[in-house]
Amino acid sequence: MTFSEFVFYFFAAILVLSALGVITSRNPVHAALLLVLAFCTSAAIWMLLQAEFLAITLVLVYVGAVMVLFLFVVMMLDINMARLREGFWSYLPLGGLVAALLVAEMVIVLGGRYAGFHDMPGPPPLPAGYSNTKELGRLVYTEYVYPFEIAAVILLVAIVSAIALTLRRRKESKYIDPARQVAARASERVRIVKMPVEKKEQE
């Protein structure tokens, strides 16, 4: 066993255990945190495959942004386990079918003989100065520029529609115009009233 194999098995073990924890944990916050751990370890495994841009982007996008929002929502939910269990038997056939499909797919892929992985040559070793990021950027903006731009536009449409679906103006909410706030001067808001001094009446 070489050192990189040792590192691979180390991270793979953590990844599998944390992924198991995600689906077995009873507390949704714990499950979300284990998912974060799973993302981080899979980033480390991608790093072993010399895909440093993808690895760092996985941490940046999924751990740094997506899971933070996810955790944000999960923390505020009031989850009642008894009510969640109610639908267990009615969902079981559909869930079982999906699970069986997934297992079958994994067996076909991991079995190797059917996918023909043993015929595939390993990637050639890359020179030390090879920049994954630069190469990816060059490909995305030259060869695959149309698919990339179309994907970007689809994402933009998704953002706009998500905002349009949830945006609702409440009539009673008071809108504050920052420009008017900044423009306000003390002379417009405060009126200083001069009163003559009155003597207290002697008794």
């Binding site: 916050v29 440093e52 982007t57 751990v63």
Partner: peptide, 25 residues
Amino acid sequence: NIDAGLLYVMAITSMGVYGIIIAGW
């Protein structure tokens, strides 16, 4: 001295928020 240093800093500092969220929860 890694090539993607700036990306690395962004990715690592974006994880700092977890400590605060978890502490609060």
